[in-house]
Design a protein around this nucleic acid. Structure first.
Lengths: 229, 229
DNA sequence: TATTGATGTCTCAAATAATGAGATGTCAAG
DNA sequence: CTTGACATCTCATTATTTGAGACATCAATA
């Protein structure tokens, strides 16, 4: 979830971008999804549109603007470029939702996601910022931090230093109902130059993921290797 | 160039994003590139960092943040996806700089660019917003507008309705020193579903492009077809 | 070793911008 | 024809943002 950055207009603008990144939104949808009052949402969306960060579709709904894609297309991030394909393969291999997360400040950003077409499934929108205090991906992104940073990150977390010792020992994390009731997840680290640069995860109903079969761990390991490049 | 949207914080924030999208920037670089005062640039950059729109590299310089790439990776735009490869092929085929532009409001956005490694060359940063009043790409993006919109767009333009008649007749535009002294360019439209959705361009020193050889026109035509999909 | 200048970060009084209630216009549904 | 929902706009009021200046850090120079 988005934090208060101390600059109100930026907080609101990012909420709008996040709302339209999820799917095209009418002004009424924007108001619903962001909680911003209608004239303010309208004014800020138009300002973002002026700069190309927001566009309009043929129905007049607000969409992500072309400038966002242009900026990120230039000097692209190799991990981001690989992530989209990797989560699709991982979802197909495991039958549950797959995601890739990276650390952003004291939160985690969903950089890619793929979910099964039908059935009970966990949905995480791409571009969403989630907590680093709960969930298996949070454990993986925290476990290999330098000790002092790890200490800070553990404050208020749903997992303990002992949990992280186990994550480092076996190389993966597992959580049940930590981020969301009824959802279990498994995550592995993605290594690059001796650092954990991302976490690759599967998540779904706890019935599917209470135990962590070797086949899922193998699929995650393959995915992590593909992401590392 | 960026316009005044009526929301000052958004105008400044986009200037910061544009500055870091070009290349990593220290705070001093940000102040130089944006003209924003140092404490303000610092405060806004940190706020953008909180939301993942700006990051920091290992030298502490501000960079484009991972959330931008994540947002645009989801539900990607096929033209944007093809543009990066197409401009590289076009540059190699012609020996001059190549770009793809799309219309954003009453400006044009550079969505992809490739330039020769050496020699005199025209540089357009990806993500830059340029005028629709001058240059061959502006002519191409204007020529096929509905008559009333075209009329409005021609106001204050460096080209005339007659110029646009010629563009439509022959299917390409050529300009010499319109956007920048000493630079000539040639552009073709990219069609999709009966609309001009982009312009594909080459640009360089006017010595190279005063006349428009058939080989350059052919390379542009191929590029436009590749972009159309 | 001390000085200087550049850089990054932070504070808070002053200045300015942003906000949102309400008005207005448009349009689809009943 | 009426009604309600939606998009857009205005401007008095409210709140936020600004940026000069202070402070800390660090590299370069004498």
């Amino acid at each position: 979830m988005d934090k208060d950055s101390g600059v109100g207009v930026i907080d609101k603008s990012v909420a709008i971008l996040d709302a339209v990144a999820t799917s095209p939104a009418s002004l009424a949808d924007l108001v619903d999804r962001t909680g911003i009052t209608r004239p303010t949402a309208h004014r800020l969306a138009q300002a973002l549109e002026t700069h190309g960060l927001v566009g309009r579709d043929t129905l007049g709904r607000f969409t992500l603007g072309p400038r966002i894609a242009a900026w990120s297309a230039d000097g692209g991030d190799p991990l981001q470029a690989r992530a989209a394909a990797v989560v699709v393969e991982l979802r197909d291999a495991t039958g549950v939702s797959a995601q890739v997360y990276r650390r952003v400040g004291d939160q985690r950003l969903c950089v890619a996601a793929a979910e099964p077409a039908a059935g009970l499934r966990d949905t995480v929108p791409v571009g969403a910022l989630l907590t680093l205090k709960a969930g298996s991906a949070a454990q993986v992104l925290t476990a290999w931090l330098p000790p002092r940073e790890r200490s800070t990150a553990l404050r208020g977390a749903a997992f303990t230093a002992s949990d992280l010792d186990q994550v480092r020992a076996r190389g993966w994390a597992h959580s049940v109902g930590q981020r969301e009731p009824g959802v279990a997840s498994v995550s592995l680290p993605v290594w690059s130059d001796g650092d954990v640069v991302a976490a690759v995860s599967v998540s779904g109903p706890l019935e599917r993921l209470t135990r962590v079969p070797a086949s899922i761990r193998r699929a995650l390991k393959d995915a992590a290797e593909h992401l590392a490049g």
